[in-house]
Amino acid sequence: MPKRTITYLSPLDALIAVAKRLSIYENQHKLDSEEFFHQYRQGKTSDEIEFIEWANDYQHYLALRQEVEQHLSYAA
């Protein structure tokens, strides 16, 4: 699958898009992303590309969430 770049208008738009992707993984595997990531970091999951992408999306989600929270705290 070729890599593609998606550009979002704001960190909030990106956060929503990543959260939607996480929701798909969670529904497919009946597992919360936070718990999955904990297991992934402990080496308790396989190295399937889907799990690598899920872990990357979760890390991206955490970074975006922090960025959005910082923007909100500056605005207050």
Rank of each mutant, 00 (worst) to 15 (best):
A19K: 15
R65M: 11
W54V: 02
Q39E: 14
Q28V: 03
A17F: 07
Y40S: 06
E67S: 09
E53P: 01
Q59C: 06
R65C: 05
L22V: 00
Q42S: 11
A75R: 11
A55P: 01
H71L: 10
L31Y: 05
A19Y: 01
R65N: 13
L9R: 12
P11N: 12
D32Y: 03
Y8D: 04
L62F: 01
L12W: 10
Y74W: 07
P2M: 09
A75S: 08
Y58C: 02
T5K: 14
Q42V: 02
D13S: 07
K44E: 14
E69T: 05
L64I: 04
A19L: 02
T45Y: 14
E34W: 08
R41S: 11
L9P: 02
A76W: 08
S33F: 03
R41I: 10
Q28F: 04
Q28Y: 08
N27S: 10
L31W: 03
E26N: 02
S46P: 05
L72C: 06
D47E: 14
R21C: 03
F51Q: 06
Q70W: 12
T5M: 06
Y74K: 10
A55E: 01
Q39I: 00
I24V: 08
W54K: 04
H71Q: 12
E26Y: 02
E50D: 10
E67M: 14
K44R: 11
E34S: 14
T7S: 07
P11M: 04
R41K: 13
L12S: 06
S33I: 08
M1G: 15
I52D: 12
Y25V: 02
R21M: 04
R4V: 10
T5F: 05
R41E: 15
H38Y: 12
G43E: 14
E69L: 14
D47Q: 13
K3A: 07
L12N: 07
E34T: 13
H71F: 09
Y61F: 15
A76M: 13
R41G: 15
E69H: 10
H38K: 13
H60G: 01
I52K: 15
F36D: 04
F51D: 08
A63Y: 11
T7C: 04
I24L: 11
K3S: 11
L64W: 02
T45E: 12
P2R: 15
R65T: 07
E34L: 07
L12Q: 12
K30A: 08
L62S: 05
Y40C: 05
I16A: 06
L72S: 10
Q70R: 11
F37Q: 02
R41M: 14
A75Q: 12
